[in-house]
Design a protein around this nucleic acid. Sequence first.
DNA 1: ATTATTTATTAGGAATGCCTAATTTTCTAT
DNA 2: ATAGAAAATTAGGCATTCCTAATAAATAAT
Lengths: 221, 221
Amino acid sequence: MSESTDNYLKHLFALSQHNQAGISTSALAQKLDTRAASVTGMLKKLHRDGLVLHTRYKGTVLTARGRRIAAAIVRRHRIWECFLADYLGFGWDKVHDMAEKLEHVQSEELIDRLDQLLGFPTVDPHGDPIPGKDGKLPAASGQLALSETRPGDRVIIRGARSESPDFLQHLSSIGATPGVALWVKQVLPFDRSVVVRIKNNLHTLSAVAAAALVVSKNRMP
Amino acid sequence: MSESTDNYLKHLFALSQHNQAGISTSALAQKLDTRAASVTGMLKKLHRDGLVLHTRYKGTVLTARGRRIAAAIVRRHRIWECFLADYLGFGWDKVHDMAEKLEHVQSEELIDRLDQLLGFPTVDPHGDPIPGKDGKLPAASGQLALSETRPGDRVIIRGARSESPDFLQHLSSIGATPGVALWVKQVLPFDRSVVVRIKNNLHTLSAVAAAALVVSKNRMP
DNA sequence: ATTATTTATTAGGAATGCCTAATTTTCTAT
DNA sequence: ATAGAAAATTAGGCATTCCTAATAAATAAT
Ligand SMILES: [Mn+2]
Ligand SMILES: [Mn+2]
Ligand SMILES: [Mn+2]
Ligand SMILES: [Mn+2]
C-alpha cells in the first residue's frame, strides 16, 4: 500500500459518501489533481487487487475491503487533525496539510494511543465525523439544509436530498457541487428564496431547492 | 526530496559521526539494506543535486547543505521518538520504527511545536542527542560502551548503539533502560561477557551486547 | 437516427528507485 | 611486481506512477 493508493482509496471513500452510483474517473481525477488517464491506470490495479470494482466506461465503487482500508485512512487523518489542533494549537486551516502526510503512517497501535490521549474524539476540527475502529462513520453531524441557514452564513455544500436529474443538473450549472463554498447573502421574505454567492457569482435558489441542498458550516478532510 | 533521499542523507550523517574519511558505498548500502549498485546510482543524483560530494571509487561526504538537511531529519526522528515515549507511552524498543515514518513529514512548524510541547528535550529515548534547529549536535560527554568498563565500576545507562527492537526489548526485560544504575561485577575472560548487577539482580550481557550498551560514570549530563 | 460533444481508455514515454550480472578499479598478499 | 580478492561502478531490466496524444465509447443535440 503506497501513499498513492491510500489517496485514491480515501477520495473514492469521500466521493462515495454523497454518490449512490459509481464514481466517475473524471471526478476522482479532479479530487486527486491528476489526469484521467493516470486514474484509469491506477483503477485497473486497485481492481486487480480487490479494492475496487471498476467497470470500463461506467464507474468505480469500493469493495468492502477497499472501504475498510479507506475508512482507516480517514480515521488516521482526522485523529491527527485533532492532535494538531488540541495539543499543538494549530488552526483548522493548517491541520489538513500536515494530516495529509501523517495519515499515511500505518500503525494501528499509534492511532489507538493517540485516540486515547485525545479522549476518543468523534469529530475532527472541521466538524467531520471520525470513523471508528470498525470503519463505521458516526452519523454526519453539523449538517443542515441551506434553507436553515441565515444571511451571513458561510457554508460548504455537502450534497442533495433529491436525485431529481433536473434539480442536480441545475445545481451543477451554477457550480453548486459538493465541496464548494457558498455564502448566504439574503433570504427573500415573500417566497423564502435564498440568494447565495458561489465563487463571486450570485444565484437565487427557490425555497424548495434550498430545502434540498445539504450544507455544513465545516470544511472537508 | 523523497523518503528515499531522506534515508540516504540520514545514514550518511550517522556514519559521518564516527568516520573521518568519506563514507564507503558498501557501508551505506549495508545501513540502507540495499545493493551497492543502487547506492551508486543514488549518490550520483545526490551529487548532481549538491547534497554530497562523491568521488568515483573513493568515498562520499555530505556537503554543508546535505548535512543541514540530514540533521533536520535526525532532529525530526528523535523528537518524534520523544513524543511517542513521553505522550503515548511506547517503550524504547517500539519508538524507532514509527519515527522512521514520521521523520519524513516535512513541516518545520510542526516539529518546533512538538519540541515545545516536550519541553525542548536534548536526548531521545535511546540516549541519542537531538540536533538543534541550527543542525548542531550536542556533544555526548563521558559516554562509553559497557564493554569498556571494568569490574567494580558503577555506571549509569545512557542509551544503546542499536535500534534493534529485540535487543532493546531484552534490555528492558532486565531493567536496563536509560537512567538506571548498573554495577559491573566481572568480565568473563573466555568470551568477554559482562556480568552486571541491576537493582540487586545479576545479569550477564554478551560482549556484543556490552559493546552496544552506552553508559557513563558521572551522574547526570 | 445521425452527428457532435464529453468522458474514458489505450498507446507510448519519462522519472524514481530498486534489482542482478558483468566489468572496472582498488586493495592485499605473495 | 603481480595475481587474486574485495569494492565500486556500469549495463540492462523491472515496477510505480505520472504525463500527453490518439482512439474509443457513451451521452447530448439536432
Ligand atoms: Mn495524503
Ligand atoms: Mn478534517
Ligand atoms: Mn525513514
Ligand atoms: Mn533514537
